[in-house]
Amino acid sequence: MAKPTRRGFLVGLAVGSASLACGGMAAAVEAGGEAVGSAQNELGMLYDATRCVGCKACMAACKRVNGDYGSLAFERAAFDPDGLWDAPQDLSGSTRTLIKLFKQSDREWSYVKYSCMHCRKPSCVSVCPVSAMTRDPRTGVVDYNKDTCIGCRYCQVACAFNIPRFQWDSATPQIVKCDLCVHTNLAKKGVTACAEACPAGAILFGKRAKLLVEARRRLAEKPGFYLDHVYGEHEVGGTNHLYLSALPFNRLGLPQLPESPPAEFSEKIQHTIYKGFVAPVALYGALCWLALRNLKKQPHDDGSHTDDDKKEGSHES
C-alpha cells in the first residue's frame, strides 16, 4: 500500500479489512492531496448508518485519543457500581461522539452516530462573543478554545443539532464537542480516531467534495436501499459531516432543517443595524443635539423648576 488509490482506500474501508494504520495513512494522503479550491479541500466524514454495526469502537477510540484534550471522562451506568463500562446515555460534557440504536420495528432498525456536523456556516461560531469557537477556513474544522471561552453557552442555544455540551458538574466547566481530532489524531495520523477505529467501514474520513461523490455513488449503486438524500449536503447551508441512512433522518434524531443557515439570517439583521457603527453614532449625535437644544430652552434658576416650565412641558404631551 505504498501508493494507495482512492478507490482502494474506500474498498479497504468498506470491507473493513485494511489494517487501521494503513487506513490512517491512506486518509492522510487524501487529506493532503491536490488543491481543487478551498471549499473542495474541506475535511469531513461520511457516516453510513446502514454499514454501522453498533460496536462503539469509535466512541472508545474518541475518548482514548481525546481524553485529556477536553477532559473527557468515563460515564458510569446505574447498574455498574464498579465502573467497568463507559455508558454514556447521550452526548455530554465527557462524550464527544455517541452511537445510538433506533428501533422502528423488529425488522427495521438503525444505528446512528452523533457528533459535531462541522457546519459550513456554523451557528456556534457566529454567536460566540469571544471567538472561542472558530472555523478554519482551509480545513472547515470547527474548533473550540477553552482558554478564551467564557462558558456563556450561547453556542448551545444556537446549534440546531444540540451538539455542544457543557460540563455541568465541574467547577471549571468546558464546552465539549467534536473537533475532528485536529489537535490529536488528525495532527498525528491524518485521520479522525473514530474513522480510524471503525471496523465496518461505516465512517469515511476525507475531503467533503470526494465524500459527496462517494455518497452519490452509493445511492446510485443500490437504488431504493438508501433514503435518496445525503443528509448534510444542504442542511443549514451544508455540513462537512455527511450521513447516509435507510431510515428517515429525523427518526434517527437528525432534525429536519432548512437549507439556509440560521447564522446568515441573524447576521444579516445584526449587520443592518450595526453596519460600520454608523447607526449608533448617528443616534448618539441626534440625541445629543436634541438634549442640548432642550437644555437651552430651560429657564435657569439654580436647577429647580417652576410652574413655568411645568406648563412648557405639558404643551408637548
Binding site: C128, P129, S131, I150, C152, Y154, T172, A263, Y274
Partner: peptide
C-alpha cells in the same frame, strides 16, 4: 457563565466577535 475568569477576553480586540449579539 461557566468560565468567568476568561471574561477579560471582552477587552481584547483580536477576540472580538462582532457577529455575536452577545458581544454587543
Amino acid at each position: 457563565v461557566g468560565r468567568p475568569w476568561n471574561a477579560y477576553n471582552f477587552f481584547i480586540p483580536s477576540k472580538w466577535q462582532v457577529n455575536s449579539a452577545m458581544f454587543e
